[in-house]
Design a protein around this nucleic acid. Structure first.
Lengths: 236, 236
DNA sequence: CGCATGAGTTGAACTAAGTGCAAGAGCACC
DNA sequence: GGTGCTCTTGCACTTAGTTCAACTCATGCG
């Protein structure tokens, strides 16, 4: 039996697990080494450095997203599935959202997603740069939406780390936020009657996404009328 | 003459400057101390810790955004100004976008912005939770859009730090990205003919923003028709 | 006038974490 | 059995957040 040896793939998988559990700030080479049953420096044989590892881990998770079959569903359904698939992936891996601010991801996993995303909008009749802009706008919206979740996840982890009751600490933070919002009438009314406004965040995401797609579709229709093209999307 | 002494405000202003220059990962207590003409530990008298400092700096910059006068412009113009004002602020302070993934901001600066944002959509006829969702969707879109800029700024800084010619290193990264994109037909076509697709990022932002506002406005109009309300926004 | 007090500063030092280096350990092939 | 390659390991260096106790100054009080 050959010596138990590390593989790059195993390292990346373990890094993803660790990132899911501990967040971006919780990933460090020593605890990664421990989780792999070895030491931090062993990892450096397989991976250039920590940044490289984050890039690798941050590209792998894109493979989890299922790409809709464009022959089977209409473009709008496909676009919605692409967006919600990304949304769900980012919710599973909030550290990726954090990393997005500090790293430029351009690996095969993200390329696969991006390419299919363009395919969806082209199938919808968006041509060339129009497809780019539409895909970019939706991507942007989903990403921005995930930031709130990521920040919240990071906060609860932070509170958990410092000893003490996390629930209680969270209540303290909420109380302080309420106090700060008091001088502002609209924020205050929402804090006082949260039941009236507070809504499943998912509903907000879905609503915003459909509004954006409506807007994009309307611009597409307007363009078609102006150029006298048929309303049937181009065959692909 | 009294002894030269630090103030909290001075520390926050210097921290913002340092963050603008060096990014979130470039902020450290020692260099902040140096920039203040003193040492790292002196800062701890005025600020609890680094997280606290980031929160303070990250709230202050919201004050830079000029809030449109709702009596002077229609809601759609106001909404656009709110969004572009935020967009410009985030472009000036890309570190804030990075921080958004890891911190929950809820200070007076952001509250001021959020409250006015709600006011804008309420003036447009969005009621209660509708205004929340509309404001949230636009905020989300602007934030997501800023992430790309932030990542790019972070990358160029990173390349600059490691010695060597940053321009050349950036070209290397581009080359690698191109190589990775090769298997994907749509990405490849865009990389081969960038002039045809590549566009001022500002145009993309403006386009996506207006599409989103179109979509939100259309939903508002639909709601109004359904409930038989007048199309005149409620007086505020 | 002198001193006690408290605000603010400083340097030393501890800890965690990223990473380079050189020595070692197992395995395969000659 | 040796030679070389792959991979692992411990040591050590560095940067950075943070604590602590000692120090300095200005001010107010007796």
């Amino acid at each position: 039996m050959p010596r138990e040896t590390l593989t790059k793939d195993q390292i990346i998988r373990t890094a993803v697990d660790l990132l899911d559990d501990e967040g971006l700030e919780g990933l460090n080479m020593r605890s990664l080494g421990k989780r792999l049953g070895t030491v931090a420096t062993a990892v450096y044989w397989h991976v250039k450095n920590k940044d490289d590892l984050v890039l690798l881990a941050g590209d792998r998770v894109w493979q989890e997203i299922e790409l809709p079959d464009l022959a089977a569903v209409d473009w709008r359904t496909a676009a919605t599935r692409m967006a919600t698939g990304l949304h769900a992936m980012l919710a599973r891996h909030p550290w990726l959202v954090q990393a997005f601010g500090s790293y430029v991801f351009y690996g095969p996993g993200k390329s696969r997603y991006d390419d299919h995303s363009l395919a969806v909008y082209e199938a919808g009749g968006f041509a060339g740069a129009e497809a780019d802009r539409a895909a970019g706008a939706v991507f942007t919206f989903v990403l921005g939406n995930a930031m709130g979740t990521a920040a919240m996840a990071s906060l609860t982890r932070r509170l958990g780390r410092g000893g003490g009751n996390p629930g209680e600490l969270l209540r303290d933070v909420m109380a302080k936020a309420t106090e700060i919002a008091m001088p502002f009438p609209r924020l205050r009314s929402r804090l006082i009657a949260p039941g009236e406004y507070g809504e499943a965040p998912e509903g907000t995401f879905e609503h915003g996404l459909q509004a954006l797609l409506d807007g994009l579709e309307a611009r597409l229709a307007a363009r078609r009328v102006a150029t006298g093209r048929s309303t049937t999307p181009a065959e692909n």
